[in-house]
Amino acid sequence: MKTNEVPQDKSHLESVSREVYYAVDENGEYKKALSSGWDVKTIALENALEEIERRVEDAKRRVLENKTSPIEYYMELHKMDVPVLASYVGIWQWRVKRHFKPSVFKKLSAKTLQKYADVFEVSIAQLQQIKP
């Protein structure tokens, strides 16, 4: 890639910082060059974010249909998966998965609920009540 070919497209990062590329100048020497963004990867990032949004919406719908607990909804909202969430709350993965069951979730102790609430930075009331 030549220095003048370094992409200067719009991106989510450009307001904060440009990023470094390594590119060849007119004398064939490698130099650092700054890029504001590249559409090719911005689209990939946007698609990934859309996918997360879809997962959040899907989880929310299933909470309202009483098919899963709000824990799964908050997990998706925080871009987590089960291994990451389990690591944050310090609870085994299989137990976290069990807490997705609405019937199990209803019986959770205040102590366990508090652990989840702390990780998601919400109150226990917010954790228990998802608004449509």
Binding site: E19, W38, L45
Partner: peptide
Amino acid sequence: NHYLGQVVRMQEEIGTGG
């Protein structure tokens, strides 16, 4: 499509120098 997008992100996202 999601998988393919992730391949490109691993390859080109910030930190790779392109």
